[in-house]
Design a protein around this nucleic acid. Structure first.
Lengths: 338, 338
DNA sequence: GGGCTGGGAGCAATCGTTTTTTCAGGGAAG
DNA sequence: CTTCCCTGAAAAAACGATTGCTCCCAGCCC
């Protein structure tokens, strides 16, 4: 690879001039002619700045890590795409870290920033990771932006408009005429789960429907949890006619459990899922979902993190645009008139 | 962050001694006592080597990039897990790059290695990426290991035992008594698709069954492609009673198309998918699949890449262990006796 | 003609590691 | 009493890019 010295030699100037010209330093004092020559030689030699040299000098890696509990979700793909876009705009590189290798005692995150490999984190925490556990993972002065979840304190965050999204899903069932609507939500201590439950409750309240505690399950977002939730809901005396599942993977599990129990969807029970992904189109029946703007979350999170690195205070943002969108498929229908 | 000089000062020795002690340099000459003191101070100060300084000096980043067309697949998650494991063993870091941002003219990959951000690539190419296009993406002297696919020439590769896997899937249908077995395969020019088709053909041949060209579709691995394939298969005079779909996502699309056409699975047509993932358990009917050892591919690929970085020649490997495994679910059954 | 200004460009320090080279002192061999 | 070698450790030279300074020179005013 061509180095600065090489370009300087061929252009007949000193390295400092080359560096300044290439970085567009406004304080450079060089004739236009010289500037062009430098640019020309750099292009000919196909120059790319050595990353280590720059990072060493600037004490900045211009890289950030996106930490997630699971990469294998189309939702994460969206988030990643947004993050990558924002990073590119600011000439940053995105590393991806898997949170399941980052257990409580792990110092992976500390090392990442300690070694200067990354300047900061965008962190999507697992539902089970408490605020304290989170703090124990990252160095005190590390720059962090949490996505989809919040944490009290000085870390930044970018979350979805969970209230509106969950409300939209619930309102869809209400509009169809459902009165007994269950919620299969996240684990109780999660702030995400609380917001979604709030949206659900809000929709019921505004429609003048009673919210029954027996219709709310809080077992988590996995298909297995949703299967157990369905079993429990079917066991109760007054079955729901509609179910809001606060996660699309859970909804897939719910469909499986309902099928196994011989309950037809949507004629006996309607199911609407929070989050949209391609597989929702291929379930049986195809899932009606609420699509949330994950791309935007990734985009904002990285922008916010870069702002933070630039010295601005951490922010807590809510992504409201584009708005949550109902994707109508075949898993919802009016309830059978009793 | 503590630096070498700081440790040296506190331990009362020079930086060079600290560096060598910390790196376990066998040629270091220091009294055991001195060595212990250095180690002690380093631990107290919680020292982590600055990555940029080291990379600059060694002209090695100790990082490698895993490039993939889509992260959002459980299969990729397996691959990643294996790759991460192998990387960790050798003290390397894994970056993930998205291939869809890497179009033909893109210099992303060149820059990655040109800037010295990574030492080499593990590359999972999109089915449509030809050998030439691939070569145009990476610098000539870049170290590359291709996964699941091969390329002629000096790049390394690690592939699945596609022949055995596809053969296993086909043999399962044969064992159930099927005689008219279709294949929904990959695009024609792909080496992966060719191997899988070969496995399919081999199974038929060994069972003394005729291979009919009309029963082989080569449209690719997407759900949409498989839907079209099903439509075309159903339109032919002599319908198959069993279908091998060379990719699980395709199989999901196939189930959708069959359902739409009113064809019952498995009573009218059996479907077996290549690759296993969690959602296969939640389709209707649940998909019988062949599970392939992706984790091992990731593991071997990174090991092979690191070997290559160490100066060993590139290798072409086939992962045969653990063996392809048939996961029996509900999408396959004996054919209706005509 | 001396001092000042401002344009044009180079010097050299610096970032944190690694690694080669050098050096001082002491003990053993001749 | 030299001469050598060995031990233990320090000094110094990279690696490549950035940036505050310095230096030089021409022109201009007084």
């Amino acid at each position: 690879m061509a180095k600065l010295t090489e370009i300087a030699r061929q252009a007949g100037v000193s390295v400092s001039v080359v560096s300044r010209v290439l970085n567009g330093d406004p304080t450079v004092r060089a004739r236009e002619e010289t500037r062009q020559r430098v640019l020309q030689v750099a292009k000919e030699l196909n120059y790319t700045a050595n990353y280590a040299g720059r990072a060493l000098r600037l004490a900045r890696s211009k890289a950030l890590a996106l930490i997630t509990p699971n990469v294998s979700s189309p939702l994460f793909a969206d988030l990643l795409a947004g993050a990558t876009q924002a990073a590119e705009e600011a000439d940053y590189t995105v590393l991806i870290g898997l949170a399941d290798t980052i257990t409580a005692g792990s110092d992976t995150l500390r090392r990442l920033v300690g070694e200067g490999r990354v300047d900061g984190f965008v962190l999507q925490r697992h539902d089970d990771l408490s605020d304290q556990a989170l703090e124990s993972l990252v160095a005190n002065d590390a720059r962090v932006v949490l996505v989809t979840s919040r944490t009290p304190g000085r870390r930044g965050s970018v979350v979805l408009d969970d209230v509106t999204g969950a409300k939209l899903a619930t309102e869809h069932l209400i509009a169809l005429g459902h009165k007994r609507i269950a919620l299969i939500g996240g684990v109780p201590h999660s702030d995400i789960a609380r917001r979604r439950e709030h949206g659900y409750a809000l929709a019921l309240h505004e429609a003048g429907l009673r919210r029954r505690e027996s219709l709310v399950c809080r077992l988590g977002y996995t298909p297995e949890a949703a299967e157990r939730a369905i079993e429990s809901l079917l066991g109760t005396g007054a079955r729901p006619t509609g179910v809001v599942v606060a996660n699309v993977n859970g909804a897939i599990g719910a469909l499986t459990a309902l099928r196994r129990a011989g309950v037809d969807v949507p004629s006996e029970i309607s199911v609407v899922a929070y989050h949209d992904e391609w597989v929702a189109e291929h379930t049986w029946p195809a899932l009606t979902t609420v699509k949330m703007p994950y791309y935007q979350v990734g985009l904002q999170a990285v922008r916010s993190l870069i702002d933070q690195l630039g010295g601005k205070p951490a922010q807590d943002l809510v992504v409201r645009e584009p708005k949550p969108e109902l994707v109508l498929r075949s898993s919802t229908a009016p309830p059978k008139t009793a």
